[in-house]
Design a protein around this nucleic acid. Structure first.
Lengths: 261, 261
DNA sequence: CAGTGGTCTAGACCACTAA
DNA sequence: TAGTGGTCTAGACCACTGT
């Protein structure tokens, strides 16, 4: 049914059929994932513009030689990421987004990705001590058991931005200062076979003490952002407890959140 | 294959078969959703304890008279919520969590759920003004177009906790002060047919000015938590821009985040 | 090795939306 | 009314895990 006259405002992208999705059935990568990645990259590169309809799922599956559930799974994963929106009776369209990529919570993101060139982290203290009462409670271990305490100073562009204090069960990961500074804590935990599952965070603010001010190059009484985090393994084990302090003048938490229907 | 001697640490819960899942095929509520809700409530009430294996999907589907994909969809939704963990070759188990219910980001959660008895919100200002440069940029409207500006003071237990300043495109929602105070902004937007999709947030800290201190019952220079948020519709339209200020002595952002694999 | 979740297929009917 | 996504079925084979 051809429309005469005006082009539909939200036309199905005609180039979609030209988009050659290369699906490799021999690959160990799941088909739905291959499709999702290629769709995502098409969106990211503007091949699929915001508002474009994706074409109905049945056609897509026929054209790609996949079953409909497989195509749905690919699309659903992008819906979960906030890149696509489905409307019953209408179709699936690329979200008209101001924000390209959903960001992770920035502080955790920093920790996960701190290998990037920007921030450097200096290990100030790295030793095994008996767990104090609050640390033991946060980590779910018995008071007095051995925990590693880690004090680090993070800088960007040569300027101090944060004091990071972390506690981990001592037996969990061998923590070498050099690798810690180059690789980052979370990467070391991951390569030690720990799969992170969830974290509980509390963000607040308070005035800097004299000592904190000195270490962070601020005035005493300056506003600081504080963050406490306990991170859990997929078995539910607490694997890290940390208290972080950020210079509010040089650091904010930026993040996007998706409202689930 | 019965184990002799020690009970398995992670035994399949024997009571699971006794759990009478009541699935109503006549209901408009999807079967997978009915199952997911009942599983979630069983977890919440401790019928399914952390670490319990759920029993394999095939058996479950046979026992429930559902197809395996349907059962998987129910389980997957709880995995996405962080309540269950799947391990290939092992099974699905209830996550050994310290945190029962994953929380939403607390500030947005407050706004969504502010009907609760605790916090009250007083509308201090509610008028239509031409958009300033930064507001126009944040909302994606032209400078000078009409926007509603909303100043509110939030209290809990009679104590002021936050100053909320919000901007909305004027034509979007009729904003009645009384309903605003009793119902909350997000609920009013929802009932006006706006389906929230995503939000971009920035959390920081700074010292209180004299005026802010006076309105929040703090000392000048006290640490404040700041939050800026732009919320988007599922069409990608910006529907709200806000600048919030919280007393750090009485408010923190608490939230849980899930690491997606 | 047996048992688990991970992936995939080829259909079906329904509820909703827009013209 | 025609087209869309939402739900559901009954199978299948594979990869991984633990014994």
């Amino acid at each position: 049914m051809a429309r005469t006259g005006d082009r539909a405002r939200t036309a199905t992208v005609p180039a979609l059929s030209a988009l050659d999705f290369a699906l490799d059935r021999g690959s160990p990568v799941p088909l739905y994932y291959q499709l999702a990645q290629q769709l995502e990259s098409a969106i990211e590169h503007g091949v699929l513009a915001p508002g474009n309809l994706l074409g109905n799922e049945v056609d897509l599956s026929v054209r790609l030689g996949l079953s409909r559930p497989t195509v749905r799974q690919a699309i659903q994963s992008l819906v979960d990421k906030g890149l696509l929106v489905r409307r019953r009776g209408v179709g699936t369209q690329v979200v008209h987004s101001q924000v390209k990529r959903p960001l992770e919570l920035s502080s955790l993101y920093d920790d996960l990705e701190e290998a990037g060139q920007g921030p450097t982290t200096q290990v100030v203290r790295n030793e095994v001590v008996p767990a104090s009462c609050d640390v033991a409670a946060a980590l779910g271990v018995s008071e007095g058991s051995e925990v590693t305490v880690l004090d680090r100073l993070r800088r960007t562009h040569g300027q101090p931005v944060a004091l990071l204090c972390n506690y981990l069960p001592a037996s969990l990961v061998p923590l070498d200062d050099t690798r810690l500074e180059s690789t980052g804590l979370y990467r070391m935990m991951r390569s030690a076979g720990i799969t992170l599952h969830s974290a509980r965070q509390r963000v607040g603010a308070r005035a800097a003490t004299a000592e904190e001010a000195a270490r962070l190059d601020e005035e005493e009484g300056a506003a600081l952002l504080t963050m406490q985090r306990t991170a859990y393994d997929d078995t539910g084990r607490a694997v890290e407890y940390g208290t972080h302090i950020y210079r509010a003048s040089r650091y904010t938490f930026d993040f996007q959140l998706l409202v689930r229907p």
